[in-house]
């Protein structure tokens, strides 16, 4: 646990000093909303369309984070230093997943108000509690997959390609769950009840892949 906390501190300090991931992700999400506005030629969106745009934007902005997650460790010897330390390797995964969860949360603090301001038809206030629950589950699922796939992809020759290619199909259940859960929250006539079934699907996904990723992460860091 102390190990994970130490790595997490290092991650956050690195991000605060270089601002490599979060500003890029946030800017990307706002730009994507503008692109959606012109691509769909719609002034406002609601319901399933709004849920889809929000989920897809967060997903693609998150891909930028995935691609950058391990690059510093690979290029500047972070992996070697970590392997020399007598600690359990799984903590690196935990720290990276928690760090990415944090990045995504900051991204959403920018992206959701921007979405409400630029595109969303109905007001966001009523939907906000449900939205936070769904996005927290989405962030957890994304962070788990990205921390695993990022480690898998970073030491291949085409890392920026391999990472998203593997991560996107793996994240389809998250997209389905999030889009279905968010749709009733963003309806034109005001937020309806949060569908518990889809929260359960998202929670189950996070649980299964969290355990699975912890189980298979070790062999990725051996040399």
């Amino acid at each position: 646990m102390r190990v994970a906390a130490a790595i997490l501190r290092k991650e956050l300090r690195l991000e605060l000093r270089t601002f490599e991931s979060i500003p890029g992700m946030a800017l990307f999400s706002v730009t994507t909303f503008v692109v959606f506005h012109f691509g769909l030629n719609r002034a406002t969106v609601a319901g399933d369309l709004a849920a889809g745009i929000l989920v897809v934007t967060i997903l693609f902005a998150g891909m930028l984070g995935l691609n950058r997650l391990y690059v510093a460790d690979e290029e500047q010897g972070g992996f070697d230093g970590f392997l020399l330390a007598p600690v359990d390797r799984t903590w690196l995964f935990v720290a990276k997943a928690v760090a990415l969860f944090g990045y995504l949360t900051v991204l959403e603090i920018v992206a959701v108000p921007a979405f409400a301001f630029l595109l969303l038809g109905p007001g966001i206030g009523q939907a906000l509690p449900g939205l936070i629950v769904v996005l927290a589950l989405v962030n957890a699922g994304f962070a788990i997959i990205a921390a695993l796939v990022g480690a898998l992809a970073v030491r291949t020759r085409a890392r920026d390609l391999v990472g998203p290619l593997i991560a996107l199909p793996l994240l389809v259940p998250v997209v389905i769950g999030a889009a279905e859960a968010l749709e009733p929250l963003l309806l034109e006539g005001g937020a309806a009840v949060l569908p518990v079934r889809w929260l359960l699907v998202l929670g189950l996904y996070d649980l299964v892949f969290g355990l699975l990723a912890i189980a298979v992460f070790d062999p990725l860091l051996e040399d």
Binding site: L152, I166, L170, V172, I176, V201, F209, L212, A213, V216
Partner: peptide, 18 residues
């Protein structure tokens, strides 16, 4: 192998979700 294990576990879960 890491990929094959992850993807193998993904198969049933994906069918459930879809």
């Amino acid at each position: 192998s890491v990929f094959a294990i992850t993807a193998g576990a993904f198969v049933p879960l994906n069918f459930l979700a879809v």
